[in-house]
Amino acid sequence: MLAVSNLVTAYGNIEALRGVSIAAEAGKVTCLLGPNGAGKTTLMMTIAGILHPRAGSIRVADTEIAGKSSSDIVAAGIALVPENRLVFPQMNVKDNLLAGAYLRRDADGIVEDLDRITARFPILRQRADQDAGLLSGGEQQMLAVGRALMSRPKLLLMDEPSIGLAPKVVEEIFRIIADLNREGMTIFLVEQNVRMALKVAHKFHLIEQGRITFSGEPGALADDAVIRRAYLGSAPATG
C-alpha cells in the first residue's frame, strides 16, 4: 500500500529524515515508534504533502506521490490525522467533518458518510452544531479521525492520536484504531504510547535520528527495549 524509500526531508541545512525506507501493508496496522525529534512527524508531514522531500520516493498503490501537493495526495486516497488534532476551533462539528470531504463532489455519498461517521462517534452527532473548540481532547481526536475518514481514504495516517489524553480515553482511541482496521482500513500510526501501539500493530518500525533502526513484528524485540529506544534512542545523546 505505502512504500517509502530513501526519503530525505530537510529544514534548511538540517536533515530531519536521512534516507528513510519504510512500508505499510494493505489492511494492516503499521506503527512507527521513536523518541522526540527523531523525525516521526516530519515523515508524516512529508507523506501528506505538507513538507516536500529533498530526495527519495513515496509510492502509494504504485503511484509516485513524493513532492505532490497535499490536495493531490488527499485525492490519491491518503488522509492524515495530524498531531494535536488541529480541528477547526471556531467551526461547528458538522462543518469540520464536511471540510474533510472538500475534494468530493458526490453530495449523496457525503451525506451518507456523515451519517456513518456520526453513528460511529455519537458524541459528534450530539454536538454537531457546537464549535469544535468546545470539545474535550478525546472528542476532538474523534472529530479529527472523522474528518480524515470523510475523504474516504485508502490509507489513514495518524500522528500521535493518544497524546495528551486521559488513560481511559487513550484506550477508547486505540479501540477505534482496532475497529477501523478490522473493517479493512490500512493504518500507519506514529505513537509514543509503546505498549498500546504494540497491541494493535501488525508491524512496527523504530526511527532514531532520522533513520529507521529496527523493523519487525511486535515481540521481535523485548517490550522494554522498544520502550527504552522509543523514548531515549539507542545512540548516546549528542550535543
Binding site: 501528506a48 504533502g49 505538507i50 501537493s69 497535499s70 490536495s71 488527499v74 485525492a75 488522509a79 492524515l80 495530524p82 488541529l86 480541528v87 477547526f88 476551533p89 471556531q90 467551526m91 462543518d95 464536511l98 471540510a99 474533510g100 472538500y102 475534494l103 474528518r147 480524515a148 475523504s151
Partner: peptide, 22 residues
C-alpha cells in the same frame, strides 16, 4: 463549500491543506 474552505484556511491552514483545500 467555498465558505468552509475559507474558514478552514483562516483557522488552521495546515489542517485545511490536509483536507485537500488549496
Amino acid at each position: 463549500r467555498v465558505g468552509i474552505a475559507t474558514r478552514a484556511v483562516a483557522q488552521r491552514p495546515v489542517a485545511a491543506a490536509l483536507c485537500g483545500i488549496g
